[in-house]
Computed example of a mutant assay.
Amino acid sequence: MGHYIQTEEHVTLFVEDIGSGRPIVFLHGWPLNHQMYEYQMNELPKRGFRFIGIDFRGYGKSDRPWTGYDYDTMADDVKAVIYTLQLEDAVLAGFSMGGAIAIRYMSRHDEADIKKLILMGAAAPAFTKRPYYPYGFLKKDVDDLIVQFRNDRPKALADFGQLFFEKHISPEFRQWFQELNLNASPYGTIHSAIALRDEDLRKELGDIKVPTLIMHGVKDKVCPFDFAREMKRGIKQAKLIPFEESGHGLFFDEKEKLNNEIMRFSR
């Protein structure tokens, strides 16, 4: 079942809502949409979980405003969904940029209605290198990527997608994955890249008080495993599970393991 939910800014968000039981709210990565969780949608509802997948503004079937791609606004959008659906004791699960926005939600909205947090290959606590944080891309790398998006977005997305998966993927899967990326708003893709480049969540990790599961690919070339160590160090009730055979796309590289750990943790 799909919902269209309006935020206070009158931006309409599409939300996929499947199954019943403990709600798990999934936040997708950049520049994907909730359909990246196909292999979780197939399994979780038949195991007693309610899958709730949000398309962020600018992505999937949601509205595509010019502004609002900073983490604060995106976290407020998540709050609108949780409030409208009247969720309580939910699990919040974020992948990559979605993991970063999940952390901002927890700090900005005082963990409202969230009982547990799952961070998967999260682009946190910061996506780019900065003083006392030697991990991730250089800010110049992201600037270069933005230039490529402005010149040839399909090629830039295809090249970036080469970094995602560790296991062999079929040409058909790669085409499907590219279509998810291309479905995003072009300016939303760029504005989100700017947020990824500039946002810093290091001081917010200590605000998270709920049990937190960190799952991260050891071979991640987009958000290096050092990110996971930093999150584990900063979040009080965090458990870190390395995914030894995964790159960034652990939702497909080791989907059975991911699904099992999500279900075990979320009960």
Rank of each mutant, 00 (worst) to 15 (best):
Tyr71Cys: 08
Tyr39Glu: 08
Arg108Leu: 11
Ala112Ser: 10
His28Ser: 10
Arg229Ser: 12
Ile114Asn: 04
Leu32Ser: 09
Asp17Ala: 08
Leu201Arg: 00
Leu240Gly: 10
Ala80Pro: 01
Leu250Asn: 02
Gln237Trp: 07
Arg267Lys: 10
Trp176Gln: 11
Glu245Ser: 07
Ala90Asp: 05
Phe56Pro: 03
Asn183Gln: 07
Phe165Tyr: 14
Val142Arg: 02
Phe251Trp: 12
Ser62Val: 12
Glu179Ser: 11
Glu9His: 15
Phe95Leu: 13
Phe160Val: 12
Cys223Asn: 02
Leu117Ser: 09
Lys115Ile: 09
Glu8Gln: 13
Met41Ala: 15
Asn33Leu: 12
Asp220Gln: 02
Thr12Pro: 09
Tyr83Lys: 11
Gly249Asp: 05
Tyr83Ser: 15
Lys116Gln: 13
Asp89Met: 09
Tyr133Pro: 00
Val218Cys: 04
Lys46Ile: 15
Lys232Gly: 08
Asn33Phe: 09
Glu16Arg: 15
Phe51Arg: 06
Ser62Ala: 04
Trp30Pro: 05
Val81Phe: 00
Thr73Cys: 10
Leu201Asn: 02
Gly249Glu: 04
Lys239Cys: 10
Ile235Asn: 02
Gly249Phe: 01
Leu205Pro: 00
Ala93Phe: 05
Ser192Asp: 03
His216Asp: 08
Met74Gln: 07
Glu172Thr: 11
His191Leu: 08
Phe127Trp: 01
Pro131Ala: 14
Pro211Cys: 13
Lys236Gly: 07
Gly99Ala: 12
Ala124Cys: 14
Ala124Lys: 00
